[in-house]
Computed example of a mutant assay.
Amino acid sequence: MKYGYIRPIVQDQQCTHQLNELFFDTLFKEAHGLAKKRTELEQLLMTVQKDDELFVQNIAVLADSLQQLLDILRLAERDQITIHFVDEQLTNQTIQKASLLQSATFFADLQSKFLSHSSTFTLQAAKQQGKSIGRPRKTDANLELAFSMYDSKTYTLYDIKEVTGISKSTLYRYLDDRSTLLSDDKE
């Protein structure tokens, strides 16, 4: 039998560009792009049998890490299943026949894709939950104190950091922002 598996990924969060030109006996579609609770993938892996074929748009759709990919490839080899990776124009058999240099290059690129996918969906989930992303801003009172200490030219950057907790690089970033604002006000 021919199976397809799709799920939201960074480049196709609505799954509208995955496996459009292919026909399947059964298509499994994951509801989210997160790494956890991939129930459709679990169901698919429990369903496939010897000589079945599985089609995915690319490796990042199927796996979230190199370890998960290796686990799935081992399972496919054990159960004699062929997995087709459409974008990469590979199957699980052709991956196994690659040279060490080809494999190392391929897996280094793949690791980068996994990290990008994971961080994108994790950030989106955090934003949807109303969580603040990134470092918190310094308080205005603390910044004003740092600015006045800096402008007085009587304190070292170390002194400013000790009093305000604002590092040299952060202080310079805020000073650059302040000078940009001041120059915009003059225009």
Rank of each mutant, 00 (worst) to 15 (best):
Q14G: 01
Q68C: 01
F107S: 10
E30R: 02
F23T: 14
F55R: 03
S99A: 04
Q96L: 11
P136T: 08
K127H: 06
S112W: 02
F114T: 05
L143N: 06
V61E: 12
F55P: 01
K37N: 15
A98R: 12
Q57V: 01
K50D: 10
E30L: 07
K97N: 11
K37D: 15
L70R: 06
N142L: 09
E21G: 06
A76F: 14
L34R: 14
K138W: 05
Q128I: 04
T16D: 10
T82R: 14
S132Y: 07
Q68L: 02
T139A: 15
A98T: 15
L100K: 10
E21Q: 12
K113V: 14
G33R: 02
T47Q: 08
V56Y: 03
A63L: 05
A108V: 13
F107V: 09
S132F: 06
L123W: 04
E42S: 09
L123T: 15
K127Q: 14
D12A: 03
L101M: 13
V61T: 15
K37I: 00
T39N: 15
T120S: 03
L123A: 13
Q111T: 15
K131Q: 15
Q124I: 08
F23P: 02
V56N: 05
F85D: 05
R74H: 10
Q43G: 00
L69H: 04
L44V: 15
L123V: 15
E42F: 00
I95K: 01
E53P: 00
Q18D: 06
Q67I: 11
G130M: 11
F28A: 14
L110G: 04
Q96V: 07
L69C: 05
L70E: 12
V56I: 04
E77L: 04
L54W: 03
T16K: 06
L73A: 01
N92S: 04
K113S: 14
M149Q: 09
T139E: 14
A31I: 00
Q18R: 02
Q49L: 04
E42A: 08
V48L: 02
E77K: 11
E88W: 09
R137I: 08
Q14T: 09
Q13Y: 01
R78D: 11
